[in-house]
Amino acid sequence: MTVAPVPVPEVIPATPPPALAIRGVRASYGRIEVLHGVDLTVPAGSVFALLGPNGAGKSTLLSVISGQMRPTAGEVVIGDKPVGKLSTEKLARTGLCSIPEGRGIFPNLTVRENLRIWTYRGGLSVKAVEEQTYATFPRLAGRRGQLAGTMSGGEQQMLAISRALVTDPKVLLLDELSMGLAPLIVSELYELVETLAAQGKTVLLVEQFVTTALLVATGAAIMVHGKIQQQGTPSDMATAAHSVYLSS
């Protein structure tokens, strides 16, 4: 048996290529800049947690990635394609699923009508979407005719994340999935996140609460004042986050 030759880096890289790369991104609201050059790479198939105190610019970064805000400098690359000036809807159609903070559903539409909107991407029939969603979240099945806005916070979040379930995105952005929810529901939702990641989807999740996020994460970073301050393993970041939160 011969010893294998030294691997050529181009063929077998040490880490898989990033599914999402953010390079030197700056963004502002009016004249106020809130992202001051953010660099971040999220490896394909990983669950990456972005942590940081209130107002750090986490949600703003997600808006930039999903095409809702244009960066004033820098670029966002998904897969190997720079996002450039693609509109939010085009990005969504190319496989980016972004579930915004606290409002991932249409409150004045029924559950079933929300699911019908999910069919814009994915080419499924509303029937198939319903089946798949109700199989994962049986609680929603009984509420298909109810206005989504009248459901409990947990049910609303299940409906919101069902979009990621049925549209088969390549990259998934989750903003404060656990906000205001009971621990039991949070762990149920994170189980689903793990399942999605196991299917090869790349997940970037933003969380305030360090503990829940870091249980499922494979990598993490801390953002403070519009910049990535530290990046590393989830457990390192857990320790680091503690001091950041206390000092800021």
């Binding site: 699923c97 972004s98 549209t167």
Partner: peptide, 12 residues
């Protein structure tokens, strides 16, 4: 209701 969310869902 929410044009931004509609865009994120893939409709213009």
């Amino acid at each position: 209701d929410d044009p931004a969310l509609l865009a994120m869902s893939g409709a213009s």
